[in-house]
Amino acid sequence: MKSLQKRRMPAFVYRNITFLVAVFLFIVFFGLGSALFTNFFSLQVFCNLLIDNSYLLIAAIGSTMVVIIGGIDLSVGAVIAFCNMALTYMLSIMKMPIIPAIMIVLCIGSLFGMLHGWLVTFKGFQPFIATLAGQFIARGACYLITVDTIFVDNPLIVKIAIFKFRFFGSFISIGAALALVMIIVFQIVADNTQFGRNVYAVGGNEQSANLMGLPVRRTKFLTYTLSGFLSAVASLAFMLYVLSATGTHGDGLHLDAVASAVIGGALTSGGVGLIAGTLFGVLTQGTIRTMITFQGTLSSWWAKIATAFLLLLFILIQRAIVTNRERSRVAKKVEVIDPVPAAETQGVG
C-alpha cells in the first residue's frame, strides 16, 4: 500500500489525514481565540462547547453515517423539534410518566428514519428530497401539536437539566455526558461491527458492495432509521438544554450537522467519514461561534460574515493539506476501472 503513494508517512496518519487536520485546526482555532480574548483559554469554555452542542453532537452522529452511505439527512432539526415538542407535551400537559414518554419519542424518531429509509432504498427517492419531505412533515406536525411555546414543568427533569458534573473546577451537563457516551458507542460500532463496515462499503461503491454480497438495501435502510433514532435521542439532550418546546427550534440544524461531518473528514460523495471527526467538526463550529461572541463588537451582519469566513478558512486549509488524496475521489464512484486500494473501502481517510 505504501508503495502506491508518493508520500512517506505512517499508515495511521495517511489514512486519517483529514481527521487529523481537523483536530489540528481545532486546536489552532482554539489557540487563536485564547490568544485574542481574555478568559477564553479555560476548561470551562471547552466544556461549554460540549454543553451547548450536546444535541448537535448526537444528531451529527446519525448525519455522519448517512453521509458515509452517500446520502444526506435534512430532517434532523425538524425531527428534534417535533420529538422535543411531543415529549414536552406528553410530560407537561398529559402528565405522562417519564420512561414511557421517552420510549414513545424514540419510536417516533425511528419511524421518521424508517420513512426516509423506505423512500430512498425501496422507492428510489433521492435522499435530499426524501429527507426534505420528512423535514416538512416533522415541522408541520410540530405546529399541529401546538402553536404556542410550552415548557417542561416536571421537577425531576428540571433537576436533571440543571445538574452539573463538576471536575477540575469546571462542569458539564448530563446532556453533554450523554453526547460523549453516544460518540464513543458509535465510534466503536463503526469500527468493530459488521454493520459499520457495511456502511463504509456501501457508501464507497454500491455496486462493488452488492457484488460482494453485502446486504446493501438493509444497510441503507438501517442507516436512515438509525439517523432518525439518533435525532430522537438528540431531542432528549435538546429538551434538557432548552426545557421548552416551540415550532421554530432546531431550524437549520441539519446544515450544522452535515457541516460538522464534512469538517471532520466526511465526503458527501460517500464512503468516507469518521464519527470522532464529526466531534471535532462540532467543536470547531462551536469555537468559531464562541470567538464571535467573545469579540462582542460585531454587528449582526458582520458576525455572519465572520462566521462564514472562519469556516472558509478552515475548509481551505484542510483542502490544501489533503488535496492529493481528494483528487482521486472527486470523480464519482461510478468507475470500477479506477484502482481503489482495498483499505479505502473501509472508509478510512
Binding site: 417542561v152 434538557l240 421548552s244
Partner: peptide
C-alpha cells in the same frame, strides 16, 4: 426570543 426554557 421565546418565553420559556431559560432556567438552567
Amino acid at each position: 426570543v421565546v418565553a420559556t426554557g431559560w432556567d438552567a
